[in-house]
Simulated assay, not measured.
Amino acid sequence: MTDRITHRFSKPELLQQALRHRSAGSPHNERLEFLGDALVNLLVAEALHERWPKADEGTLTRARASLVRESALAEVARRLRLGDRLELGPGEMKSGGHRRDSILADAVEAVVAAIHLDAGFEACRAAVLPWFEPGLAELPTGKAEKDPKTRLQEWLQGRQLPRPAYRLLETLGDDHARVFRVACETTEPPHEEQAEGSSLRAAEQLAAERVLAKLEKK
């Protein structure tokens, strides 16, 4: 895994902390995750700004969101094989926490922060940007697909139909591993789909995507 990260830590304890989930005790990676979230957003925004000189703010914002969303960061973690090195408490180990998107995404952000604290911003940029190259390469130049909730709303508005409604059906899991189950419902045409996610927003997006897929088939 260290080879896939490519950065050689002068302070290995930073990497160790970045890969320790709160369920495994302190010092865990939540503070590093906080810093890493800001760094990842900055690095990706900077890369898009340089590569897409003619893109407007909305396009850049949507592209960044697609690259730094939880599922995208979890894929980065899988390519780096971070799940194999995560330090988890017994409960998280039994429940497969090393495969959960939310835990993997948090670990990526924490590792980014650890690299920054270990060697500075330039070293962080050099090590981290290659992790996002596959995602950047998949985006059409200067374009980024809108998120499912936006696309569903625009699909309905374009046909002069009522906006969709979202309902929180259930919240499961411990505080550090919440799972939200939501429903997305349209009245015209009547349709409902449910989905789960590690955040309310993620669950709503997935439910909207499922509703839109059904509507577009009709």
Rank of each mutant, 00 (worst) to 15 (best):
I5T: 07
R8V: 14
L14M: 05
Q16A: 15
L19E: 09
R20L: 04
H21S: 12
R22N: 09
A24D: 03
P27H: 12
E30H: 13
L35D: 15
V40G: 06
N41D: 14
E46A: 13
A47C: 10
R51W: 01
K54R: 12
E57H: 12
G58W: 10
T59R: 01
T59M: 06
R64L: 12
R64E: 11
S66Q: 10
L67G: 07
A72Y: 01
R79W: 06
L80I: 06
L88C: 07
M93E: 15
S95Y: 05
G97H: 02
R99P: 08
I103V: 13
L104F: 01
V108P: 01
A119K: 07
A119L: 02
C124G: 06
P130H: 04
F132H: 04
A144D: 03
E145W: 06
D147G: 11
Q160T: 11
Q160R: 13
P162R: 06
P164R: 06
P164T: 01
P164K: 05
A165T: 10
Y166F: 15
Y166M: 02
R167G: 06
D174W: 10
A177S: 08
R178S: 00
R181S: 05
V182G: 00
C184G: 01
T186L: 08
T186K: 09
T187F: 08
A195G: 01
A195K: 05
S198Q: 08
R201Y: 10
R201A: 11
E204T: 05
A208D: 01
R210T: 01
R210C: 03
K214S: 09
K214W: 14
